[in-house]
Write a protein that binds this DNA or RNA. Structure first.
Lengths: 176, 176
DNA sequence: GCTTGAATGTTAGTCGCTAACATTCGTGGG
DNA sequence: CCCACGAATGTTAGCGACTAACATTCAAGC
């Protein structure tokens, strides 16, 4: 946790790419080597995705006769309640930092690929075509990610759940 | 072009991360330094996006009273003709390599961010809300990217335009 | 008290990438 | 025809992320 605090502080003051893991290690009172024993990469301090199984399950719980995109969309909305509970203070700090760095957004994109894969596997297990499933999952996750990044840059009174609902509403089959 | 050929060959035989730019340079008969004078980064050999203005213009050409997602969707479909003309032989090789490497997919994701930004700017210029525009553009581009990656892994007789049409059809406002 | 295992440190190295400077070489003007 | 100029290439040195092999500390359990 000392590492995480030190890293967050440094990232916020001088930016992500401008701070080296040597600096982080020094600020945390450890060796650079020790940093990598706790985080496999520099970006792992900010990018973590513990929600994949939860989301995949929520998608699978939607009616099977719906098209993949609609199942994914409703599944994400259903999972939203439990996920946005994890909206602690540091979560927003982390998202804000990620939103500012292309390298970090790329790392996050790789992270959401895992989520996409979980969803796709679930959809395919219920008989969906793999490409159709990938299209549906990636579109929904992209919209959600856009909302997430906007949340990181938004004022404190804006809620993540609201933005995500707005994002997924745009993908609803019949729009006003 | 010697560099590009050498890189493509090495990437295909031993994989992207397993081949160093030293190897590429040696295979092309040059110095590592010279490699970076022609390509700013190692991934620049594979990831290039010259279509941004074309796409943004196509999106802008769609009826202004449609919602952002629909404008983007139709714009991408309209631009598809001219883009898939660039389906030369090496394009597919490149996409296939990108599809296999997480690091390259991440680099490509950053590339499509530029496209997304171009689309968003165009939509915002026509009065759309910035977040709504970002959601629409990222969802459409994610679906398109899914199709592109599938194309890279598909048989030779599968056409890119067909896959993209299928991808964007799933985002149509009223589905069967 | 001794041992075991986990956490940490040390050293050295690879790879992507950059900067400062030297070198070759083909082309056009004197 | 020669020289000067600029473009492309090479050389050296270095930074930063990351890894591997090995040594060290240190706390808990037998």
């Amino acid at each position: 946790m000392r590492i995480l605090e030190a890293a967050l502080d440094l990232f916020e003051t001088q930016g992500y790419e401008a701070t080296t893991v040597n600096e982080i290690a020094a600020a945390a009172g450890i060796t650079p080597m020790t940093f990598f024993r706790h985080f496999p990469t520099k970006d792992a301090v900010l990018v973590t995705d513990p929600y994949d199984p939860l989301i995949a399950e929520a998608v699978g719980a939607q009616p099977v006769d719906l098209p993949p995109l609609e199942r994914t969309r409703l599944g994400l909305l259903a999972a939203l309640g439990e996920i946005s509970a994890g909206e602690d203070a540091t979560a927003r700090r982390r998202v804000a930092i990620v939103a500012r760095s292309p390298a970090l957004r790329a790392a996050a994109a790789i992270g959401t690929e895992a989520t996409q894969e979980a969803i796709v596997d679930r959809l395919v297990a219920d008989g969906a075509d793999r490409l159709d499933a990938a299209i549906a999952a990636s579109a929904c996750l992209a919209a959600t990610t856009a909302a997430l990044l906007a949340w990181g840059a938004a004022h404190a009174d804006v809620t993540l759940a609201g933005l995500v609902r707005r994002a997924l509403a745009q993908l609803a089959p019949v729009r006003s």
